[in-house]
Design a protein around this nucleic acid. Sequence first.
DNA 1: TTGTATGCGTTATCAT
DNA 2: ATGATAACGCATACAA
Lengths: 354, 354
Amino acid sequence: MATIRDVARAAGVSIATVSRVFNDHTLVNPETASRVLEIATKLDYWPNGAAQSLTTRRTQTLGVMLPELFGEFYSEVIRGIDRQSRAHDYQILLSSSHSNGEEVLIAGRAMLGRIDGLIMMAPDEASIETVERVRRRVPVVLLNPRIEVEGCCSVAFENFSGARAAVAHLIGLGHRDIAMITGPQGNVDAEERLRGFRRALADAGLDPEAAAIIPGDFREAAGYEAGVTLLARRPWPTAVFAANDGMAVGLLAALAAAGKRVPRDIAVVGFDDIAMAAYLNPPLTTVSVDACGLGQRAVDLMMGAIESGPTGGSLRQQLPAVLVVRQSCGSDITGTGMLEQTAGDGGAVRRGRK
Amino acid sequence: MATIRDVARAAGVSIATVSRVFNDHTLVNPETASRVLEIATKLDYWPNGAAQSLTTRRTQTLGVMLPELFGEFYSEVIRGIDRQSRAHDYQILLSSSHSNGEEVLIAGRAMLGRIDGLIMMAPDEASIETVERVRRRVPVVLLNPRIEVEGCCSVAFENFSGARAAVAHLIGLGHRDIAMITGPQGNVDAEERLRGFRRALADAGLDPEAAAIIPGDFREAAGYEAGVTLLARRPWPTAVFAANDGMAVGLLAALAAAGKRVPRDIAVVGFDDIAMAAYLNPPLTTVSVDACGLGQRAVDLMMGAIESGPTGGSLRQQLPAVLVVRQSCGSDITGTGMLEQTAGDGGAVRRGRK
DNA sequence: TTGTATGCGTTATCAT
DNA sequence: ATGATAACGCATACAA
């Protein structure tokens, strides 16, 4: 491949001039510049990225580490990062699906010297060491971190309050026996949503410990299975809060398969508000978070951190999680007979109205 | 940051020895090695990636260029690439959402010198120039290419036959008036699926030109709108083939909103078989493609190409697209009265059985 | 406006 | 087994 030297020789100039042409640094004689450009095109020359970053100590690349990469949520986060990165002339080095701290460490090391910053999603305890290590060299922005890291910016969704609002909505509708399908063990978002669920119950004077908690993993199948499990119980809950939309879809399927109608027989709320949520049958009431926006915001914070150097502060941003009411929860069930109906159906004790 | 020189000095050895320790090249004296490693750890040293790739001419990185990045399909492709890349100790440099050839060119240039190979999805005419340019330096693997490029491996889904099978299924069920919602203009997959649709019609002696073709863009909203459009016509079709599952979901929603039952009133088929397809209401009959597998296969081809150098041949692989029959198409409508029912409902001329 | 020379951090060749 | 040193391809301070 042609190097800067080849171009310089062919154009009869020094490599410094060629370099200047490609970085339009100092004013180069227009004639010289056009001749160099012409030769460069003919030789199919373009500056070698690795060499550039070695001298400039800039890679124009952002590292991105994700815990997982399935479903629309993560995909949207990447989309946001990708879009905003390009806007700032940065590329992204992606690495995902790390099951443990060891893998994260390896991935982090491989990125050293190749990135100007690292955007890391939902780091767990095992990843903190890697974060600290990387942080000594380049800025790190955390996405939905379990624990904040000194000197790192972070941006997170209001998982807790979003979940709380969703469940409060259910309670406001008259529901008292509400179950939840949780996300994967160890996932911060999942835990925060569970916490919001419990808080909403407690807020209403209900016993969080008495509520049915079905473990899930954010995938459709888990929601389906949870539905089957829930339906096997007596009495079954009048409403279910799924920790994400994917599981809500699975749950909806299980309910439909069992002949249950939503929201008439059982109300369902999800979380994430994926593109399909509004088009489900019934349209899913869920908590909307702007995954794409999260990625964009992370890049913005990163740009700031890169600009300000290692002295940059550590901003903590919170992105809203707002309840979007559609049709999967129906309206006030008090007095509609749903409570009795369900209880009677399950052969259990009739529950009170209030 | 500590460099190889710092470690060498602190350990009282030459930089060559430190390098050997980190590349366990030649046998280094165990004692020396452990001392070097100890010092390196203390100094938090790790080889600089940019410098490494400058000397070795290897970046251990694969470039990935995608036309879009929304929905589960692209996300799954990336997942497959990511997973398989890691298995081969490669990282991925991602770039997506290129609206035109100019952007592709810029993205391609930015990758020069930073990648050992490029995996490019669905390149259009405007991208071919970039492909050719990149190809002179590193191997290129094309995903679902519109036109094959000399010297490039490629792997594609059998879009055409998959679509053909889906529509043939509908025809086998007795449907004669089948509409299609297409993908975005210029998208190869979309065009191939449309071609398969038409072929299936022709195969059955039906007139492809007479079928309703509603333009779409792969997003849910387009499917919904298409549904509204279709329902406004008289007579409306007895079946609809959506070019992807996302639009099928939108269509299903429009149908439900209009009080139409699927498959009783109208049959629906999708394409992609996303994770949610089986959990929709009704479970969606669709054409299954292994997006994740596509990514993995691409990486495998890439590894082969990198091994064999520029002399490597250009393998062309086809991945199956198989029809998965679920419940959105129902069973044979001949004799069930659906044909007459529909025609009568629309106030149109009664169509014949055959 | 242009050229010379140095260094970026590493691997690899050739000695020792 | 280890060391000295030359690339790798480029940007840039300094000189002209």
